[in-house]
Computed example of a mutant assay.
Amino acid sequence: MSSGTSGVDEARNALGKRLRELRVAAKLSGKQLAESLSWVGSKISKIENGRQTPTDEDIRDWAKATNAEGQAASLLAALHNLELQHAEWQRVLKAGMKSHQTSLSQVDEKTTFYRGFDNTVIPGLLQTPEYARARFAQVVMVHRVSNDINEAVKARMQRQEMLYRPDKRFHFVLTEAALRYRLVSVDIMLGQLDRLMAMTSMRNVKLGIIDFKTQYVTDPRHNFWVLDDHLVRFESYSAEINLRQPQEIELYTGIFEHLAGVASYGAAAREIIGRVMRELAAEDEDSGV
């Protein structure tokens, strides 16, 4: 995850440096600026050193206090670009989970080739309604956002309609671990695996599975998506990271090719999925559920 976070850190540090230059030009110490804004003194240092992201209001107040209101628009543009790159979940989900699914659909409409790798969960575009519901329930629990699970599930299912559009192509690579992690109940997971089995035969969807015995070329560090050749997206616990720099896209494209190159497809992928299903079903019977 270091490549993504380093780009975010660089942008945040650059913004902090610009704000420090305004303070110095106004001949204000950090303490003086903090007092004029009724802020705790440490906030100035954190913002200037890239350890805290300022809000829109912080930027406007800073520009006003340093007699640099003419630069407010440019500073806000830099902040918003940073926010696009590092979209904190608390901000992204403020309007609800359905709203986020809708915003993803807008990006979907412009994308023709999706490449996605996941080492822990089934990607949203491949989820059954039951699996999606369980995932959204976790979001509500972890981020304490409003419960619009029903609407979010419906929006995700609508997004999946693009899987059947002939003008789009999809290449998914999952690890066997993603098929086995106990993130949902056994019956929900069995239904999800059955859906994956069907996905292996779709015309414009290529689904690869990396089983536990496979020798990796590069480590499966975290999930990520490559959308055409203009965006890489991945998720941390706190934020959605969006990378747009050419060198970052080239890096992740290469990593995807390494992972895809060791995955199993077609009948071999179905054998892995089927093996996991049989083991889960047997376990379900043994438990008496």
Rank of each mutant, 00 (worst) to 15 (best):
S6I: 11
V8P: 02
R12M: 05
G16S: 06
G16W: 06
K17A: 14
R23V: 02
A25V: 01
G30C: 13
G30M: 05
G30S: 13
G30Y: 06
E35P: 02
S36Y: 12
S38H: 15
W39R: 04
V40C: 07
K43I: 00
K43Y: 11
I44S: 10
I47P: 03
I47N: 05
N49R: 12
G50S: 09
R51A: 13
E57Y: 10
D61F: 02
A63H: 01
A68D: 06
S74C: 04
L76D: 01
L76K: 07
L79W: 06
L82N: 05
H86V: 00
H86D: 14
H86T: 05
A87F: 08
E88R: 14
L93K: 03
G96K: 11
V107F: 03
E109S: 10
T111L: 05
F117Q: 00
I122E: 05
G124M: 13
L126N: 06
Q127N: 06
E130M: 05
E130P: 02
Y131G: 08
A132S: 15
R133G: 01
F136L: 09
F136E: 00
V140D: 00
E151D: 14
A152V: 07
A155C: 12
R156I: 01
M162H: 12
L163D: 02
F170H: 05
F172I: 04
V173H: 03
A177M: 14
R180Q: 11
Y181S: 06
Y181H: 10
D187W: 04
M189C: 11
L190Y: 09
Q192D: 15
L196Y: 01
M199G: 00
T200D: 07
N204D: 15
K206Y: 08
G208C: 02
G208R: 04
I209Q: 04
I210C: 09
D219L: 13
P220Q: 03
W225N: 10
L227K: 11
D228V: 05
H230F: 15
I249M: 08
T253F: 03
I255W: 08
F256T: 07
L259S: 11
S264L: 09
Y265E: 00
Y265C: 03
G266Q: 07
E271Q: 11
I272G: 04
V276P: 02
G288I: 01
